[in-house]
Design a protein around this nucleic acid. Structure first.
Lengths: 338, 338
DNA sequence: TTAATTTTTGTAATCGATTGCACGAATCTA
DNA sequence: TAGATTCGTGCAATCGATTACAAAAATTAA
């Protein structure tokens, strides 16, 4: 009884053609008010639901967008997805999720699968291990809009939405200086990703602008986990002049650093200040709440969605938009001296 | 140049019909080895990619499943989605995400949209504010498998994957008793959801089994946020005999409780033990790491996916499977007396 | 009343794939 | 070598919608 009803079923019931039904349902002005009403009512009665697949095939628009992220259960990424979803859902789009686990092969795989599924666009954050760009160009060749958020690669024709990582690094470092710190270390990530490089640049410039000499022993490139924080602190504290503050490019690394510092009996924030990056939920809930940089992921997701929408609207023109959002410094206990 | 190639393009290039191309690509044994090879090579050369939409329309299988959750940026849910994705992706399925914001209207909306998009199944956690069940029956009437995870409603024909909330409540409470607590309060949620009711039942039974009289003043139903934790503790501590432990159905409420207890100068864990629920990431990172119940969300997601797969495999038989996973008590600092 | 318009509806192609049936060619049987 | 099989392909329908174009019906004009 509740089997799928098609426009043909309605047509048969009313002794008209499917074309008429289709037009009536789509409010085509060429249909008489009487038949339109009749069709509408019968459709409702028969519990008709439009088959979006058929529509998609005919129109070439699937009303699906693909979102590719390293992991979906990392707050930063899931919050971005939330933003994307909230922006696109009201317009009838659905979001298809894929994760790469930071593997380039998975990234390529995902992109191909999404293209085969005829998505109307792909929004993504590139994997840490990505080196090639041909799979991105492949997307553009198929005339499918591509938007990078947060982590990007330089590819012509791709729009990007990022925060101003340079500014974020600058602000965080300046804040530490204002707290009276002068020997500020920086825990960074792989510079193959611009975000880490830019945070580093901002850090360096803030030092210079405030008359602090840059010390390259204070900069360590690490993985993004807690252990990396432990190890980095161990290394830093054996230096001849150990630092008195850390600006970390990752909240997890900052957390590890704090744990290790406490273990070593260093007093935070009085003798040592720490600031992380990403505003992961846990930072707020720590006994000593952690200062960090909020990247406004939900906003970033919404903005990515908007950029995508502009792109589909002006499908004739090739737009390459670069949106840069302002980061938001969250000053909390780990960097607030009394 | 890189415009979409169809089997018709390949057919034309080789002077055969699309049917032949289709068969060759699908390794149909009726095709001669020679033509198969030729077709394969030409397909590769022309960069052919199968249009999944056309396939979906023809076959009636979209290879998409819908996942509906209250919020995707809550770790518990995003971890479940991760599990689902990892289980289904290798089989060629894609996951379409929707969020309800705990609104029943959005839930109904999402389900309808997913059905229109011809998903092969819907996996979901019902919204807190859901009261009706007709939209779930609607899914079943369309012969689309429906699986509830964690939060469920009693609907005939729907498979469910949950943890044993009763056991979880029992174990958590028993653990507190073993730590020497005897006046154990319980912060619960809305009993319209079975999960909260069952945790409460387990709590109560553990008390009885250990000769502790149940005190209904010790049970408070609250929202699931930090503030609710503050308020509940305020109320509990003004009782004639205040409790000496809390088993909370939510990590956030437990966090709020801990904050308030500290503010009041109560010593945790020596004078007061606390245990939460969900193993949210922040619980591990607190100064005083929080004991909690791990619901194994990734496992739960994988199991939900498996149940869905069984359902599609045996599309003729109507299976209604009830999987109950064992919860995992994480004993940490907030409930470990020395 | 008839021709000219305007409305309304129908016919049939299309989107890109799959597949039952039919048919010609090649191979086998006797 | 005639007849029966088997093999490889083509024809055409199908999935469920949309939409030029054509045709019929209704309305208006003269």
């Amino acid at each position: 009884m509740n089997e799928k009803t098609t426009i043909y079923d309605i047509a048969k019931a009313l002794n008209v053609t499917a074309a008429t039904v289709s037009r009536a349902l789509n409010n085509n002005p060429k249909i008489s008010a009487a038949t339109r009403k009749l069709v509408m009512e019968t459709a409702a009665k028969m519990n008709y639901k439009q088959n979006k697949l058929a529509l998609a095939l005919k129109s070439g628009k699937s009303n699906n967008v693909g979102v590719v992220v390293p992991y979906i259960d990392r707050n930063f990424f899931s919050a971005i997805i939330r933003g994307i979803e909230e922006e696109l859902y009201p317009l009838g789009y659905h979001v298809i999720i894929c994760q790469t686990h930071e593997q380039e092969s998975a990234e390529i795989d995902n992109i191909n699968a999404l293209l085969n599924a005829q998505v109307d666009g792909i929004l993504m954050s590139v994997s840490k291990l990505s080196t090639q760009t041909s799979h991105f160009e492949h997307v553009l060749n198929k005339n499918v809009p591509l938007v990078f958020f947060d982590r990007k690669k330089d590819v012509k024709g791709v729009s990007t939405v990022t925060i101003d990582d340079y500014q974020a690094g600058y602000n965080a470092t300046k804040h530490l200086i204002e707290q009276g710190c002068s020997k500020i270390a920086h825990l960074s990530g792989d510079w193959a990703l611009e975000i880490y490089k830019n945070r580093y640049k901002g850090y360096k410039q803030a030092l210079l602008d405030n008359g602090i000499t840059f010390n390259k022993d204070y900069v360590i490139k690490t993985k993004s986990d807690i252990k990396a924080g432990h190890k980095s602190v161990e290394k830093l504290m054996t230096l001849e002049t150990p630092p008195d503050a850390i600006f970390s490019s990752s909240d997890y690394v900052a957390l590890g650093a704090i744990q290790q510092l406490k273990k070593m009996g260093v007093k935070i924030p009085d003798d040592f200040c720490v600031i992380g990056f990403s505003n992961e939920p846990f930072t707020k809930f720590m006994e000593l709440s952690m200062s960090t940089v909020d990247q406004l992921p939900v906003e970033m997701g919404k903005m990515s969605a908007k950029v995508f929408l502009e792109q589909v609207k002006e499908s004739n023109v090739k737009i390459e938009k670069k949106v840069v959002l302002a980061p938001n410094l969250k000053i909390r206990a780990t960097s607030t001296k009394k």
